[in-house]
Design a protein around this nucleic acid. Structure first.
Lengths: 276, 276
DNA sequence: TGTTTGAATTGGTCATACCACTGGAAGGTC
DNA sequence: GACCTTCCAGTGGTATGACCAATTCAAACA
């Protein structure tokens, strides 16, 4: 048994996670004052520096508002938080997936993907075309391996997004990918049809290659719409299930770590060191 | 002369701003190590706590990766940062507007707006319809006042987004609005046609009212596309100008504070206390 | 040549003290 | 009583010094 790597979080990270969860779950309603820093120090059993680092991050996330002398007040994250909070909202405190958030992410993906492909076709360059075709070829030779296809498809979109020349799309893609990664293990089956749709991917690559923006847009719309509908069906089934037995949380969908402990060697990029 | 309000930033905010600007502007390339905390303390002349709070925020933004014992390394923000960074990218170090970023934001707005209206029409409720029509009426009675129309149009979209039931759209809207606010003064003229397009707004409200999702989508597309094209024209002109005289920065577009010092009493919401 | 070891470096944690701002209570003024 | 001023307890902001823990890499070693 390969000894699992110890997950070392800093204290301020732990404080941040705990407080943000309290706020996001609504146990600390918007408008109320957080306990003073010195009280949090006592309750949590950590030093004030760790508390302050966490509070600063909460303020940056739009979850609280800090005012010297006035205390730290909880905000309504729906009106003050940015897209980066999505990852925290996706996973519920019980470890399950928030179907409402998941559906929102899929809707956003469907709205953006066609425009990403369109812009990429407009502003494409030689290396991008080569990389896209290379990825499609790689997908062709790794059929059956859904996890591998999922990674390749993700990389396919990564190339598209970064060749679109739209920095907002690039950043939003990073956020969405981070959110998506949390449940990729659970989605690998549902998204199977989309990630193994070789023709769909090739159609986009070809359209980009021939600088045909409308065709790229249409191809992307078709590809993404397919998987989106499948996920919608699953989510609706889960929502019904959830409504039936209110007592127990959703069990079908689990966090990536739980559902897919053996992390496949997919991300060829350096250790994702973003929001730690 | 009305004494200007003193802008009181905390030290860690100042450190964060300075370091993030260094990274975003490329003066600290991805992969290089930041100076050690104790060295930053000396160079910047602040205490270590302030430096650490700033570094933690940089890590949360996806600009750096902190490793105990290993130092703090600069990341490629295009691949690791989330959408929340957009606000920092919009304003250049010389105070001007980054036309590339501005164009990206407008493209994203155009891609999302139709789907927001569509979903809102699908999931609308009585109060939303009433508020939308109320806002359209308010716009009708405050014609000529562009700044007022701009605020009302922004609120119009705020209602649409929060009635769409899509939490990703809500958060993305918060991010985009924050980015947009930085240059709203500069855009009030260019967006004039769109924000005073009463029929366009009313068409969306009516479509939402009658639960006609396709119509809402089409109406939103028409409304947003108009203003988007106008901004594109302006941005392209600015880009050409910029290319001509490389020596001097863009002067036409200025930060909101500079171009519109008298902040109109528009935002009826509580003090925006997000990222402070 | 490859391995081990250990000291220097760097981030993480802790405790304490004091400064700066806010909000409300106490007291005074009309 | 209503309004205003003053003052202080509470809260966040800043500063300092010390020590712990992980990493790195060069020196010592097999």
């Amino acid at each position: 048994m390969p000894l699992q790597k110890i997950d070392r979080r800093t204290l301020s990270d732990a404080v941040f996670d705990q407080l943000s969860r309290e706020i996001v779950d609504g146990r600390m309603a918007p408008g109320v004052l957080l306990p003073p820093e010195r009280e949090l120090v006592e309750v949590l059993g950590v030093n004030r520096g760790a508390v302050r680092e966490a509070l600063k991050r909460l303020a940056q996330s739009g979850l609280v508002q800090i005012q010297q002398g006035g205390g730290t007040r909880v905000l309504d994250y729906r009106r003050s938080a940015g897209l980066d909070l999505l990852g925290a909202l996706m996973v519920r405190s019980d470890g399950g997936v928030d179907v409402h958030v998941a559906r929102s992410v899929m809707e956003m993906r469907r709205a953006l993907a066609p425009d990403v492909a369109r812009l990429c076709a407009q502003r494409r360059d030689a290396t991008t075309v080569a990389r896209l075709h290379g990825l499609v070829d790689a997908m062709a030779s790794s059929a059956d391996d859904l996890a591998q296809l999922q990674s390749l498809s993700l990389e396919f979109w990564d190339v598209l997004v970064h060749a679109s020349g739209n920095v907002a799309y690039q950043l939003a893609f990073n956020t969405l990918r981070e959110t998506y990664e949390q449940i990729r293990g659970a989605l690998v089956i549902v998204m199977g049809d989309e990630v193994s749709d070789l023709q769909g991917h090739r159609a986009i690559a070809d359209a980009v290659s021939s600088e045909d923006a409308p065709a790229a847009r249409a191809a992307a719309e078709a590809l993404v719409d397919h998987g989106t509908r499948r996920v919608f069906e699953l989510l609706e089934a889960l929502a019904r299930e959830d409504a039936d037995r209110r007592t127990k949380p959703t069990e079908v969908l689990e966090t990536a770590d739980a559902a897919d402990p053996a992390n496949p060697p997919n991300t060829s990029k350096p250790p994702k060191g973003g929001p730690e």
